[in-house]
């Protein structure tokens, strides 16, 4: 899922300092699961902003709503009646949701409440880790199911570099060396010979480097 974290109250408040009434829109997708922009976080953020503004003697009126998903136009439509009389919309979705809201309501001031961090999963309750680099050309079958693109600090395909020691990455003793993990797993699987295969330079055009990407499935298109 997409992992996001809320910006500071100060940062969010500064984006709407001239507004008297705002709509806060949560998202029931990824950001609900990672506890950044679901129903609870939306209500807490609205209350926090109201309290802050009251203390500053500039009361703020808030309206809250949680969309099923903000990355789908049909769910953005459900906001229409709430958007009309507010001065701004604060989206608690990932960057995709913010853009969908801004695109649909082009005359509204739309601001992000979250920083969209990465694609990852849960480690413990309240702890998430990046696991996919969205490179568009998965290599996990070559590396024992451990991603060198995003988990190696240098995205090395023929690792590990000389900075790997005691299982840790050169950039931090708290960070596992992805290539140590890959080595251990391939060794356990009896597939170390696979790591001796030279991996050629990657086709990054399938990643962000090819420009903004679009995926098409003609077989499921309606029109």
């Amino acid at each position: 899922m997409i992992i996001a974290q809320q910006k500071s109250i100060q940062d969010i408040a500064s984006m709407i300092e001239d507004c008297n009434k705002v709509l806060l829109v949560g998202c029931a997708g990824c950001v609900t699961v990672c506890l950044a922009g679901g129903e609870k976080e939306t209500e807490v953020l609205a209350a926090s902003l109201r309290i802050k503004r009251r203390l500053e003697n500039k009361p703020l009126e808030t309206v809250t709503f949680v969309a099923t998903r903000q990355c789908d136009p049909e769910y953005i439509e459900t906001l229409e009646s709430y958007v009309k009389d507010v001065d701004a919309v604060i989206s608690l979705a990932c960057g995709v949701g913010v853009q969908y809201v801004a695109e649909r309501f082009s005359d509204k001031w739309v601001v992000p409440a979250l920083n969209t961090n990465f694609i990852g999963g849960s480690l413990n309750h309240g702890e998430w880790e990046e696991r996919c680099g969205l490179c568009g050309d998965c290599v996990l079958h070559r590396t024992g199911g451990i991603c060198p693109i995003i988990r190696c600090s240098k995205s090395i395909l023929n690792g590990p570099c000389g900075g790997s020691q005691y299982g840790k990455c050169e950039i931090s003793k708290d960070m596992d060396c992805a290539w140590q993990l890959i080595y251990d797993r391939m060794k356990a699987l009896g597939k170390l010979d696979k790591l001796m295969e030279y991996q050629p330079p990657k086709d990054w055009s399938k990643s962000r480097d090819g420009g903004p990407r679009r995926a098409v499935r003609e077989d499921v298109m309606i029109d």
């Binding site: 600090s153 240098k154 995205s155 090395i156 395909l157 023929n158 690792g159 570099c161 900075g163 050169e170 950039i171 030279y198 991996q199 050629p200 330079p201 990054w204």
Partner: peptide
């Protein structure tokens, strides 16, 4: 060496190709 250790730790790293390549 990773840029974290240098005097521009906020720079982008490239690693378009690796040393083997």
């Amino acid at each position: 060496d990773h840029q974290k250790f240098g005097n521009h730790p906020t720079s982008k790293n490239v690693y378009d190709v690796d040393s083997m390549q």
